[in-house]
Design a protein around this nucleic acid. Sequence first.
DNA 1: GCATAAAATGAACGACGTTCATTAATTTGG
DNA 2: CCAAATTAATGAACGTCGTTCATTTTATGC
Lengths: 199, 199
Amino acid sequence: MKQDEKRSLLKQKVFDSAFERINQDGLTGLRARDIAKDAGCSLGSLYNAYQDLDDLILHVNSRVLEMLKEDISTSVVEDQDAEAALVNLAVNYMNFAYAHYNLWTSLFGHTMQDNAPIPDWYTEQTNATFLTLIAPLLKLRPELDEAQAFILVRTLFSAVHGIITINLQERFISIPKDMLKLQLVEFVQTYAKGLQNKA
Amino acid sequence: MKQDEKRSLLKQKVFDSAFERINQDGLTGLRARDIAKDAGCSLGSLYNAYQDLDDLILHVNSRVLEMLKEDISTSVVEDQDAEAALVNLAVNYMNFAYAHYNLWTSLFGHTMQDNAPIPDWYTEQTNATFLTLIAPLLKLRPELDEAQAFILVRTLFSAVHGIITINLQERFISIPKDMLKLQLVEFVQTYAKGLQNKA
DNA sequence: GCATAAAATGAACGACGTTCATTAATTTGG
DNA sequence: CCAAATTAATGAACGTCGTTCATTTTATGC
């Protein structure tokens, strides 16, 4: 086996271990020594593979973003009307949050140490994921240019995200998943109709 | 000076120091040793005044909730129509988030150590704060009972909260405050109109 | 003023992320 | 094939953190 094959194999094992730890216990349960133990390497090797824990977490989050994008893209069906597409997206997003709760909260709950800046490649990927959502909205409001539509997409996504986030936070009274889904569907329909009336 | 006067004086000084630290540097910059130094007491005394840092943070957050409630209640004016009241609430909430950013994120970013449960008094206060928002929505949809209105209030609040949160997160492209305000106003108006059409 | 209770103290503990001198493994050149 | 040189793996050690607790200091009651 080549040298760089071994190198990337270790990197992969470290990644997988971190991913699984976050998936199981959440970000707050992530420990460098646990990851090293799971990956079957020493503590120091972890820092040969990744710069630090922030770097490793960002790579895990990057993978979660990919999963999310893949999930979302399957819900955009060409021949359904725009409103139905938006409702579909919102419900799919909710299902993703429920199905991968710890991974999903890692996306939004992670903060860099010492206020270090988030690397550009990550913010770019994050914002690129939104562009997946833009097609149905452009159908709904064909007169908008892409910049305006992007802002609108963000607003709608943020609203849906907030509704799900608040409901899943322990410090708030939660409603069951079925009821949340109904609320979400009604919310998106109401907002979409309002948008169409404005157009 | 009586004994319990000194006791509560120390507790107050510890509280003030923690509040100011969070206000200045955010939750992640909060250190037990810094608080003790600011309060002019020993590290151990901090743990005589509060059970642990979680306990102290919850008390700070409780104060922030009070500030928020006070802020919000001033924006509910009796003689304005319901839609304007909701818009007003959303804009006030946004202004609070901007004016007290670190305190505001402490409300939502704090998680208990070891997955300890959030004490009941805190969750109750959190949910009680929402009830402040319910009046204008009941005007908009008088046929709803209080339980249904509460769910709607939560949906609308969560949506507004999400829009602000996402915009203020470093990992997303942000729009300036003025533009966010416009988006928020338009969003709430759109949604409120949709609600009225359903009634 | 003395005995008792309460409060303040900071050294010490264990856990954490990270570093780095040392060791082991691998590659290279003759 | 071996030795020199390069690269990777290692885990003890460091600094920092929240928290504890034996000890000291202060306050209270008679």
